[in-house]
């Protein structure tokens, strides 16, 4: 069965590149433009993995992470962070909020697919 990934980023360029990468590898992709949009879509669709940016308007990635982990059907779904943030403090916050992994941009399509394969393979 085809696995679905919710890809969340306020940058249209990043959404395009991530979607191109994931669809090329056979995943279905649902795009969201910020944390609030992602939360709405996560409530409506059940996905196999969430890939989210951190710095976004309306609701950032950490808040999204925190709220998703409170939803029964997202407690155990892998949530990967894809961000320009590389500081240890921010990573620690992500880890504490329940992130599965942290990828620092610029993203490498091959490594992104490897990591996704590992967590939902």
């Amino acid at each position: 069965m085809v696995k679905t990934i919710l890809a969340v980023d306020d940058s249209a360029s990043i959404r395009q590149m991530v979607t191109f990468t994931l669809k090329g590898a056979g995943y279905e992709v649902i795009q969201a433009v910020d944390g609030q949009d992602a939360l709405d879509k996560a409530n409506y669709h059940q996905v196999n993995l969430v890939l989210t940016d951190i710095n976004m308007p309306r609701m950032d990635g950490l808040k999204l992470l925190e709220l998703l982990r409170k939803l029964a059907n997202y407690k155990n779904i892998p949530i990967l962070i894809l961000t320009t943030e590389s500081g240890d403090e921010m990573k620690a916050k992500g880890r504490a909020a329940g992130a599965t992994g942290w990828l620092v941009k610029p993203f490498d399509p091959k490594r992104l697919l490897e990591v996704i394969g590992k967590v939902i393979g």
């Binding site: 590389s86 599965t100 942290w102 990828l103």
Partner: peptide, 10 residues
């Protein structure tokens, strides 16, 4: 020629 760091927490 490559991307940024990757870390898996679990």
């Amino acid at each position: 020629d490559s991307g940024g760091d990757v870390e898996l927490f679990s």
